[in-house]
Amino acid sequence: MSSHRPFSLRFKVAATMAVAVALPLSLTACGGGGGGSDEGKIVIGTKFDQPGLGMKNPDGTYSGFDVDVATYVAKELGYEPDKIEFKESPSSQRETLIQNGQVDYVVATYSITDARKEKVSFAGPYLVTGQSLLVKADNTDITGKDSLANNKKLCSVSGSTPAQKIKDEFPSVQLQQYDTYSACIEALKNGAIDAVTTDEVILAGYAAQSPGAFKIVGEPFSEENYGIGLKKDDTELQTKINDALTKMEADGAWKAAFEKNLGPAGIPTPAPPAIAKN
């Protein structure tokens, strides 16, 4: 007896496998601003390594201000927490993930800039912060942006606005660019670099994670408006997210999320920013 399956049977098996492979893809990355469907999941991009903002915990859960904002917005779009799939979104990959439809939207310390708006659209902003510097607690050489000369070794993340600002405005600095800020923190711990630069809220989270090890120095030297990134010109989804953010700020959930996640880092709770179409 031949071990080969009849052609018709093999065809049915192949067709079944093709459907099985395609099905999960159709249930994720809803895109198109449809929001609110009871079918499938919503895929949200965030950071996995930023304490206080976007963190994947050892038990597989997610926490942080960005995570809470993303979850609130998803619920307003019709998705309960168990329908959310979080996807890691490193700074250098955020536009690509959105453009390729791998995520529905990104909440990942994502500064709204003109260059990025050429590729994606933004809702928000939902948080305003500024670029700052983190050094070891015993460092006396670096006290702010004016002490960055003399070939100081500075670490930031590829594809980030802080890294670009250092390139543009502080050309004498030796800039090391890693994929994640957590890698920069490790380099700071072992003395491979002199300082880490990114937005103050991000640095504060790392400082709070290692009490007494680091300190933030100087005043912020930029203004960063964090927005929620989504597919370019998807005005329907943009409007729905803006409405959700407006509601979150009005009902006190925004303030509660900030105090829970960033209050322990010693950052005073600011007034929430005005939501504007971006």
Rank of each mutant, 00 (worst) to 15 (best):
I142A: 00
R116F: 05
M248N: 00
M248K: 00
E223F: 05
S92T: 08
T161N: 10
N225Q: 15
I193L: 14
E249T: 08
K152L: 12
L133M: 13
V135R: 10
D194I: 05
K119G: 00
L175R: 02
P211V: 08
D82T: 10
G144Q: 04
N150Y: 07
S222G: 02
K215G: 11
P51H: 04
S182T: 05
S147G: 10
F258R: 00
S172M: 05
G227H: 00
A115Y: 09
I44W: 05
A187F: 08
L230A: 01
G78C: 03
K41P: 08
S111Y: 06
F86V: 08
R116Q: 13
E169V: 10
V135D: 07
S92Q: 12
N278E: 11
S121R: 01
V217K: 03
Q174F: 12
L77Q: 08
Y226H: 10
I216T: 08
F214I: 08
G205C: 06
L25D: 00
S26I: 13
Y181W: 04
I216M: 03
V21K: 03
G159Q: 05
V201T: 15
K136A: 11
I185S: 04
V13H: 09
A70K: 00
L25A: 14
K75N: 07
N139C: 07
A183T: 15
Q50W: 11
G229W: 01
T28A: 15
T61C: 03
D104K: 01
G52W: 01
D234G: 12
T161A: 14
K56W: 04
F7W: 13
A204D: 09
E169H: 13
L134F: 01
Q50K: 11
D49L: 10
E118F: 00
I185Q: 12
S158M: 12
E76Q: 13
P81I: 01
V19L: 14
K277W: 00
E186K: 14
V135M: 09
G64I: 06
I267Q: 11
L133H: 09
V120T: 06
